[in-house]
Design a binder for these strands. Structure first.
Lengths: 126, 126, 126, 126
DNA sequence: GTGGTCTAGACCACC
DNA sequence: GTGGTCTAGACCACA
């Protein structure tokens, strides 16, 4: 109901983000069964095809998995291949550091920056 | 030369980002004349039209200006170029944190990770 | 159909003016769906790319907006479309007065001329 | 010296406008001899080629005329073929009225509008 | 079918 | 040689 969609980013991605958030916040717990594609589609007010694509994509990312006839479930953390995760982690970090370096920041600078941001966030949360 | 283009974001936007970076890092100074559209196009390995579009967009953003027959120039230090570096920094950090989050890491985790990497590097350097 | 293009001003700008006019006159109402890029292109007898550029520019100006797969629409009555008619009126008057001036006629002369024409027309109608 | 040139309209046209203005204001009287191309060029701070083009264009428009070796002169009003002027006048008026009509204004409306503008101008001048 | 992006190649006005 | 415009035709993601 409270769905607001932007016009310059694909619908299915916005849906993916919404679902990711529900999982991140624990709204949908690991192992939990998801509503059917059709139900989710009407809830979001989109075409079932679009919802289907969003879920398929999330499955590809390892956040969901499907049991053929039983439905879709939120993945357990372990189900994402640990090796793959490590690999992606490194590529993300490398990309970030390369970018920072292009702006003239060293690894040390980057670490300090994030440290500061983290502490700020903590204070806000209190 | 060292141009690597991703496949899921428009070429002309990636070019824009590259140029923004050169300006942000001072590689291209305010008032400086840019190579011609055609030269930039061959350097990047894209069609002149694509380069043209990227430059036109940057002009619209106020980062460049064109003297019709003399060439294109980096805008003089108005507030526009001033904030550029800060803006790019934020976009890099946001992208990194989004990626980390998709792997299940929080800002705090990311900060801790970089901290560790930084300390390792320091020890190595001694 | 009734498209006449001048040779010394870019096609895409003339197209923009034509569309602005249709919107200003209410021929195309706010919220209304436009024909597709391709349709408009053949109607105007120009390349789809050129029409695309014109529409993209109008979108940048806020007169149109695009739903990526659904089509393009005239913007809802924000202040933007409101001022359009007034703006076009002024540009037409300015163009006329500039032309008259180039022939040696002042604003006063132009006003007198139209006044005379108007009275003639009135007499004819009686 | 006090020359300011815009970047998005051809230099030679801006120069033409400047000269037209000098003629319109009587700064340069009909029959008067103009300075040489070179002098005008340095005065305006442009390339002699550009000044040459501006003057040639004004000649084509009938505002100036050249006596082969004696130099260039401001045209007498009568030297512009009267018939041609009438023809242009009509085309300008027609274009204006067409434009006004497209916005929903009649000839009468247009006449009234200019009348009002003229009176405003007069009051300002007092 | 919709908008958006890209290439290849041409032509133009301007200086 | 410079930026700018235009065409023709292709391909893509999205719904």
């Amino acid at each position: 109901m409270g769905w607001k969609f932007s016009d310059d980013v694909p619908l299915y991605q916005q849906i993916m983000d919404g679902i990711k958030q529900r999982i991140a916040t624990g709204d949908w717990a690991p192992g939990q069964k998801l509503p059917s594609v059709r139900e989710l589609a009407v809830e979001a007010g989109v075409n079932p095809n679009t919802m289907q694509k969003a879920l398929a994509e999330l499955e590809r990312e390892g956040l969901l998995y499907a049991k053929r006839t039983a439905g879709r479930f939120v993945a357990e953390r372990d189900e994402i291949t640990e090796g793959l995760q490590e690999e992606m982690l490194q590529s993300y970090v490398k990309e970030f550091l390369d970018n920072m370096e292009s702006l003239g920041y060293s690894l040390k600078d980057a670490a300090a920056l994030l440290q500061r941001m983290s502490q700020q966030e903590e204070r806000k949360g209190e």
